[in-house]
Design a protein around this nucleic acid. Structure first.
Lengths: 253, 253
DNA sequence: AAATAATTTGCCAAGTTTTGCCAAGTAATG
DNA sequence: CATTACTTGGCAAAACTTGGCAAATTATTT
């Protein structure tokens, strides 16, 4: 057996098994310990795998240890993500804002294909990169807490695009003030994003219910649909109806 | 059996088996080692397969989906990164392009503070986010292989900024063609970035030496300094001098 | 929990086998 | 007869094996 074939088989096995041991590979290929070690050394030098004692592992994809808000009410966010993903057709063009809920939606969209995605969230871009036909990142000043772009540059660039569906998340949803958010730059960009879409979905899970942010989120109500993970209480439901703001509660499936 | 038939059969077997060995083929066809070697040599010259020691493999259609090219010649890249980082003052405004070498530089800059950073590389942004006073991501279409933005949007946005120092990486550095790169969108953006800086550094580690990309990289030579990790060979050194292109070899410290 | 023994592994050097490459020779072909 | 295709043999380089030793890891005992 030739060296390149061994290399290939080693990498294939790594794809399945996460780690491979020198011991096992010597048996499998019927070559000496040292040969396998050299193989692994070579593959490590060319950044195909990571050499560890006794064998090798897949290359570590540096995970971001940042505070992950998507853990909060993860089940509800996931339900919203699945429901909305089911309403986004293959190959659609979509504009996603930033936020933990949006990131969960993005993960739910990784089964889609041929999407054209516009977003200001770096993590959303990273998640959807493998399945996008087109992927556009809105430029601008980065808010390092959110790892997303904002500011006049972002507003201006966003205003140039038109998509089938835009999706934004809300910081608060209340009977008193309806949709609200906590930063001016966030509101500005979300309003712009909402105007880019033929239809607009606003996602808000129950942790946003009753929360009133400092900034009102003014979006085109008639082409908007709210996606929630719980039935709204009576006062909220009345407020939504009086504003003719459609909503949909994400079911368990 | 005639040579063309052998060629055909060799290629057919490669379609099935990924690799073929000279040894096996001599037995199969009943010809000498040297004959098979010539067959493979010929097929390799006409780009039908790739010659490897002891036989041949299929041609690599696409470059490995390398998770992290920064591991190739990591030591040299790190040396370049440290040397250049030492020349960037605290609080400077810098424009960084995308690429594995630039990412290594970014890691070397995480000891700095108060930087204003402009970049089209999502990973560079992620690395430098914690230490930036300002962080601006250039928007545009994302190249999902590089996870960086390109295109007309990116060019236009980049053209609005002016910084103290711009840093770009080169795909190739040769006596014949000097600085080159492999994609048109890449050179366009890099040239723009180089014009944004008061001074411009171009980083190229030894794996780029002698490599000639399809696109020439035209940058303002008089305000540019090349950072290398090895002394250039005589012909390259002469070419750099005749172009009055300054360079600096990154030392061990 | 610490100390010790046994095992595994990494790394190096020397030895063996395989392969690449070259040159010269032989067979086949038109 | 000249050209092309193939074989043969030899040498150097590369790949591979083997064995040894030190370091790291694991198991065992105290």
């Amino acid at each position: 057996m030739l060296a390149p074939q061994r290399h290939r088989l080693i990498l294939e096995q790594l794809d399945k098994d996460i780690t491979v041991s020198i011991r096992a590979l010597t048996q499998r290929f019927g070559v000496s310990r040292e040969t396998i070690r050299k193989d692994i050394e070579h593959l490590a030098r060319t950044a195909k795998l990571e050499q560890v004692r006794g064998g090798a592992t897949r290359i570590r994809t540096q995970e971001v240890p940042m505070a992950d808000r998507s853990q909060i009410n993860a089940e509800g966010k996931a339900r919203i993500g699945r429901t909305l993903a089911a309403r986004i057709p293959q190959g659609a063009s979509i504009f996603l804002d930033n936020g933990s809920s949006t990131q969960v939606l993005a993960r739910a969209l990784t089964e889609h294909s041929g999407l054209s995605v516009y977003t200001n969230d770096l993590e959303v871009a990273r998640i959807l990169a493998p399945v996008c036909a087109n992927l556009v990142l809105i430029g601008g000043r980065i808010n390092t807490e959110e790892m997303a772009t904002f500011g006049s540059e972002a507003l201006e660039q966003a205003s140039r695009y038109h998509v089938d569906i835009s999706v934004i998340s809300a910081g608060g949803l209340s009977a008193r003030a309806l949709l609200t958010d906590f930063s001016e730059e966030g509101v500005n960009l979300r309003e712009q994003i909402s105007r880019c879409g033929q239809t607009c979905y606003v996602i808000a899970d129950q942790e946003k219910f009753g929360v009133v942010g400092q900034y009102a989120l003014a979006i085109p109500l008639e082409s908007t649909c709210l996606i929630l993970d719980e039935e709204p209480r009576e006062d909220l439901r009345a407020a939504l109806q009086s504003q003719k703001l459609a909503f949909l509660v994400a079911g368990p499936q």
